[in-house]
């Protein structure tokens, strides 16, 4: 079942740089897709378009039935409530505890306190940080901080989890653990996962569908497990 569809998408920045050229791709519900490519290849632009941080210059970007390209600024927040985003630099609020950081996502939506607590505790449990609910980000390791970021991204039970180089700042062992968490979210909760990464090992080991973007062009769409033999990044 189609969940994301990009049709002839172009993105040219005001500086004249073309980040994406005529990109078309379909991603089904519940899929786990890696997006790979060199730095400045256009993969971040692709990822940002999905949660409407960027708008295409031409073409359509449909996420969960909504044409994101035509979405009015005042309506963007409704799309974002269906999407969880995990960043390379975690983007945690340093003065809030683990619990508060995760709850923050629900408080912003105006949810009741008694509804927030069980959802937050469940998300924290999924990422395995139950013992650290009262800790502040500076008291956590990089891997733990990334887990908090994942918990915050999934606390509202999004249909889509976007991960922008989530293991970029982590050592290989911690990266493996984080990938286990993300994989289990995909398998157990049925959440569609789209992950931009530079980490060849992870891509090879996970054997998922891979989209290869080079100079703004989608040059490869490798089905589940078929990427390893086409190593170019």
């Amino acid at each position: 079942m189609k969940f994301i569809e990009l049709k002839n998408v172009n993105k040219t920045y005001s500086t004249g740089v073309t980040a994406l050229a005529d990109m078309s791709v379909v991603i089904d519900k519940g899929e786990f897709v890696f997006v790979i490519g060199h730095t400045a290849s256009g993969k971040s632009t692709f990822i940002k378009m999905l949660y409407r941080e960027e708008k295409p210059t031409k073409g359509s970007v449909v996420v969960g039935g909504v044409n994101v390209a035509k979405l009015r600024n005042g309506r963007v927040y409704k799309l974002r409530r269906k999407i969880g985003v995990v960043f390379q630099d975690f983007k945690l609020l340093p003065k809030l505890t683990v619990y508060e950081n995760v709850a923050f996502a629900l408080e912003c939506l105006g949810m009741k306190e008694k509804e927030i607590r069980p959802k937050v505790m469940k998300a924290i449990e999924i990422v395995g940080l139950k013992e650290k609910v009262r800790s502040f980000p500076h008291q956590l390791s990089g891997g733990e901080q990334q887990r908090v970021c994942i918990a915050r991204a999934i606390v509202n039970e999004p249909k889509l989890l976007i991960c922008d180089e989530p293991t970029g700042n982590l050592d290989p062992e911690t990266s493996k653990e984080i990938m286990k968490v993300i994989d289990s979210i995909n398998k157990d909760l049925g959440t569609t996962v789209i992950m931009a990464t530079h980490d060849k090992d992870i891509v090879n080991r996970m054997k998922k569908r891979v989209l290869l973007i080079e100079h703004g062009v989608l040059t490869g769409d490798y089905l589940k497990g078929s990427y390893k033999s086409h190593e170019s990044v």
Partner: peptide
């Protein structure tokens, strides 16, 4: 930025 990304209205 975080508030925007988690879907808080303006």
């Amino acid at each position: 930025e975080i508030m925007r990304l988690v879907g808080a209205s303006n």
